[in-house]
Design a protein around this nucleic acid. Sequence first.
DNA 1: TTGCGTGCAAATCCTTTGCAGTCCA
DNA 2: TGGACTGCAAAGGATTTGCACGCAA
Lengths: 134, 134
Amino acid sequence: MCRSKGLRITGPRRIIISVISEMADYPDIVELHRRIQAVNRRISLSTVYRNLRQLVEAGMVIRHTFEHGRSRYELAGRLHHDHLVDHKTGKLIEFHSPELETLLDNLAAQHGYKVVGHRLQVYVEASTAADPQD
Amino acid sequence: MCRSKGLRITGPRRIIISVISEMADYPDIVELHRRIQAVNRRISLSTVYRNLRQLVEAGMVIRHTFEHGRSRYELAGRLHHDHLVDHKTGKLIEFHSPELETLLDNLAAQHGYKVVGHRLQVYVEASTAADPQD
DNA sequence: TTGCGTGCAAATCCTTTGCAGTCCA
DNA sequence: TGGACTGCAAAGGATTTGCACGCAA
């Protein structure tokens, strides 16, 4: 895959891609760097940034820009989905809603447009049983 | 309003709030600072940042974090809405969909959460009559 | 008078970049 | 060998903060 993009297969790149392709969550750069350094202590943050940028351009990784702070990265090529974001813990919960997609299609159509993509983050908090208000 | 928040009514603050309450678009800090300095050249960027932060906390202004770069601010107190973004022209079309809100509430509830807010941008393109594919 | 508010500069945080040395093809 | 890749440090852009002074209440 690297070769098809004209990228050389270097030691650092090999490790970075291996860590990335195993990620099942949405780590930020620092966390990724930590995981990568666990394999090879010498790999620098810049190299991780540079490689991640290339992988995003290559379509292998999706970069999410949530609220301010570090971006978080996701392995691409999975079913489209959006996220619930627990604003207290930062935890992400994936969901897929065909109903939502349909709704957006209709909304766009009402304005004479068609949807080509969307970004949605739903900020939530745990709704414990003890919730007087609603 | 300031008084009720325990904020003093200073010269700079008066100008900042007046400029803000007239904004009908989504300016970023630099643009706002420009408008504010058009009234009083001595008002600093930090002061604009500091006041904006307070106004956001006070709920008078909404801070949008689109893709990377400067945040953009919107006068609050209008009906909640989201945006269709024409990805070719950059044009923003506001829309409000109670149906969407309900859907999100339900989705969150299914996961044991309640919605405290959301960010949605729907990227669209003009759907001309001539559209063979779907 | 008190202490919030301000301007300025410096500091932070996240990300990118210049440079010189390294190493893959 | 040549040019892509890397590590390091420094640069950049957005935002915040420390400090001393000024001003509203």
